[in-house]
Design a protein around this nucleic acid. Structure first.
Lengths: 343, 343
DNA sequence: TTGAAAGCGCTACCAA
DNA sequence: TTGGTAGCGCTTTCAA
């Protein structure tokens, strides 16, 4: 039970050379149909599974790709993104017999070291670059390391192939939704400015507000956490008369929107009667809270799927073009409603 | 930049045989101190990093371990367990140059196939078995596959080494806490019965209740989700007079406790004035919601750390003994308080 | 102590 | 179309 079946065994049983076995099993030309059949049969009889290690050494490939999650463990805990994203990745990797290596680096420097060691011992054939920061040091690093990489929701001028999910459409829909409901005093709770997607969402917001001919409204920086939403609610609502409070707020992710709503309630602002609140992401939790959360729903699973497909293509040496998946769309639930009539 | 430095290069530069390089760099005896120094120097000069692939083939090791998350992607999304658990694992793997391969199988059958293929091509040297179910089919499978495995929070009679975090102490503390606050009508929201830890917590609960001399109270089965908590609250509170409602409820995890609290509020039960609610896990979210959630705090990071340590030992062929880490303890916050006086 | 050489299991090239 | 063989980069055994 311990000695595995190797290509030699298969060759012996089929009465051919190992090179023929290799060719036959990898659908390479140069083997007659008849011998191919015999070889396949032999392989099946013996339960032959090609050794990844042998292949790996010979093919100079790891048959694995890497995802390094930076920031602290709490992210993976609470960020719904990665679960689905990874699920999407797996969908593509599995049939191609690739594996996903997950690493976590809590601090930025540590994260970079992870990429370095992944590259140094050729543990992976490529990596995903997600949660990109402004001037992200990983970009020059993977370049230098010669590691194929795919950017996830990167800027347009990103120097390597990336998959993107549009946020502009959904945000425009949301702002139009607010406008239609009669809201005039808007506010935005952003993510930390060091993340590019925080900036992206913020710009899309401003553009949409301008396009609707609405006043600019307040913008406060959040941090993508529930607590950040609580703090933002304090900043925007506490100690203010109703007439000075915004009536419609978009938070840059659902988790902070949920925190925002909770705190708003404590500060005497009823959602959605006094205040409309919307998030961004479309996490499950948003359908459970009361009121249910209006949001802009993303599809991280699709993002992961496409990113993996692209990465494997890049690993294969293909030139891969950027891909835009279906943009995130507005999902209206019950946390948004008509603007309050009072003044 | 593309041709990597190999052991041959190092040997050439140091003017020795590759076997000596191997011995020297792996701190094996049989090399004079002087040559060892020369070799180490040469390796350093050349920036030599031993190829994992070569080692892997020769050593018959993958230098990787696997974690297969079963159940659907939503788990990774919302379950705080895995983020920290993986973080703990990494802490141990990294210095030993091991990597973590993460796989997701949405359906049970699929999950089993993942283990099979991981074993078939020797992608990993061992696996973690977490979220164990009753009569979990993975147990006989990894046995059959000859894959070293470590159980996480397994039953006492588990046939392979496991790491456990005690739940009995915390639950006893919680029940005592309830008793001290004057509660007499308790209730428990369990997890799905197919998970062993659901049963474990349930038994611990019953034992503790008996030990405190309290009436048994109602038990309803939840599903570890926010929504499950909502449903449980409906079951226990809806359409009942205050005098017939339980006054203290433990939910088998925090997420469902938070759902429970939310629904309880809608059903007119103020927490903690009318109703005390406690969870289990100690997730961050519990400190953010209002009232903040009393819970029994686990330390998944430590669990992962210990599990990884054990798994590597098992991979090394050592006989590893079960490990009990510090039990989960009660953390009193504001969702529990004195029993209501009415009636 | 040192070095030569035989694997590990596969791919790929080249000659037959 | 086939088969032999030289790597891939390392560990390990066995002579020298």
């Amino acid at each position: 039970m311990n000695t595995r079946v190797t290509i030699v065994d298969v060759a012996a049983r089929a009465g051919v050379a190992i090179s023929s076995v290799s060719s036959a099993l990898n659908n390479r030309p140069g083997v007659s149909e008849e011998t191919r059949k015999r070889i396949v049969q032999a392989a099946q009889d013996l339960g032959f599974v090609p050794s990844l290690r042998g292949r790996s050494l010979s093919a100079k490939r790891a048959f694995a790709v890497g995802l390094v999650v930076h920031r602290d463990p709490y992210v993976l805990e609470s960020d719904p993104f990665f679960g689905s994203f990874i699920g999407g990745i797996e969908t593509v990797l599995d049939p191609r017999d690739y594996a996903l290596i997950l690493q976590m680096g809590s601090e930025p420097v540590e994260t970079l070291d992870r990429y370095r060691s992944l590259a140094a011992n050729r543990r992976v054939d490529g990596v995903f670059l997600s949660e990109l920061g402004v001037d992200d040091p990983r970009v020059p690093l993977v370049r230098e390391l010669g590691l194929p990489a795919i950017g996830v929701n990167a800027e347009l001028d990103f120097p390597m192939p990336s998959v993107r999910q549009g946020h502009v459409e959904g945000i425009r829909e949301l702002v139009a939704h607010f406008a239609r409901l009669g809201h005039r005093r808007l506010a935005l709770v952003t993510g930390p400015h060091e993340f590019i997607h925080a900036g992206q969402r913020r710009r899309a917001w401003s553009d949409a507000v301008t396009a609707e001919g609405l006043p600019g409204g307040e913008i406060v920086e959040g941090d993508f956490t529930y607590d950040g939403g609580v703090v933002a609610a304090d900043r925007l609502l506490a100690g203010r008369a109703a007439s000075e409070r915004p009536t419609a707020v978009m938070c840059s992710n659902d988790l902070s929107a949920i925190g925002f709503m909770a705190r708003a309630g404590e500060l005497g602002a009823r959602v959605p009667e006094d205040l409309s609140v919307a998030g961004f992401d479309g996490i499950q939790l948003g359908t459970y809270v009361r009121p249910t959360l209006t949001t802009i729903a993303t599809t991280p699973r699709l993002l992961g799927l496409e990113a993996a497909r692209m990465l494997l293509a890049a690993v294969d040496g293909e030139r891969v073009a950027d891909v835009d998946i279906e943009p995130a769309r507005l999902v209206v639930r019950s946390s948004t409603g008509p603007a309050p009539v009072l003044r």
